[in-house]
Amino acid sequence: MPKIVDHDQRRLELVDATWRTIARLGIESATMREIALEAGFANGALKPYFPTKDDLLTFAFGHVFNRTNERIAEVTAGQSGLAALKSFCVEVLPLDEERINEARIVIPFWQKAINDPNKARIHRESMQQWLAAICQHLAEARQSGAVTTAVADSVLAGQLLNFLLGAQIAAALAPEGQMELGLKGQLEGFLALLES
């Protein structure tokens, strides 16, 4: 009787193997062969799922983005305003090994997106989704009186998103084992400025 393969599960296993391999070897040395070995598959087993490393990287970016959004939805459920905004940001910030490894997937994707219009579109649409959520939380906070700064919400949202994305780079480039980069304190400082 032929073995039944769960193709969605196999794709996720390959994505997990991809970021472990990238974290260990870097994007250029993370060959399809290395990724297959990390996942425990034969080299040719990747081709039906991801014909190229580029395809795998695009899928991995989408997976990381969706996984982050699932965490955000969990922690912001029942919250609004500044509480929801802070919870949102904490889930995006690379504050633990898992999220630092996610950053190690996102950064090579950005590098490819510079010259790949399809990847650039995927990134742009993802960030528009996050900007909309940030703006919504800011509007709720302003309506409740928690945000009083004269700076427009659209400007604040852009600043906050740039901080979150920059934190990805800082965490990925930090020396091995260093996870405390002061990111939570920087977030708290930014949120405190919203009341001035």
Rank of each mutant, 00 (worst) to 15 (best):
L56I: 09
N66G: 13
G78L: 13
T52M: 13
S80P: 00
F41N: 03
G78W: 14
S126W: 02
N118G: 02
L93E: 05
G145K: 10
F50I: 10
L131S: 04
A42S: 13
L46I: 15
E97Y: 04
G62D: 09
L131Y: 01
L37Y: 11
L156I: 13
A146P: 02
V147F: 05
H137T: 02
I107Y: 12
I114Y: 08
K47Q: 03
L82D: 13
A73R: 15
S29V: 01
A84K: 04
E125G: 02
I122N: 01
A139R: 12
L156M: 05
F88E: 07
E140T: 12
R121S: 09
P108H: 07
L37C: 07
S87K: 06
S29M: 12
T149N: 12
G81Y: 14
I105Y: 07
V106Y: 03
G44A: 12
A83V: 14
L37A: 15
V75H: 13
A103N: 12
Q128Y: 04
R104N: 10
Q129L: 14
E28G: 00
I72K: 01
A141Y: 03
E125A: 11
A73S: 15
A113W: 07
G78E: 12
S87W: 00
D54V: 03
G26A: 08
F61P: 07
R124P: 01
G81K: 13
K112E: 15
R121T: 04
E74C: 03
V92D: 04
A139E: 12
C135Y: 03
L56A: 09
P108A: 09
A141I: 02
I114E: 10
A60Q: 02
I134A: 06
T148K: 15
Q128V: 01
A150C: 09
G40C: 13
R142S: 12
P94H: 07
T31C: 05
D116V: 08
S80Y: 03
I122E: 07
V147P: 02
G78Q: 12
F109N: 09
F109T: 09
P117V: 06
S29T: 01
I100F: 03
P51I: 03
R104W: 06
D153P: 04
S126V: 04
L37G: 08
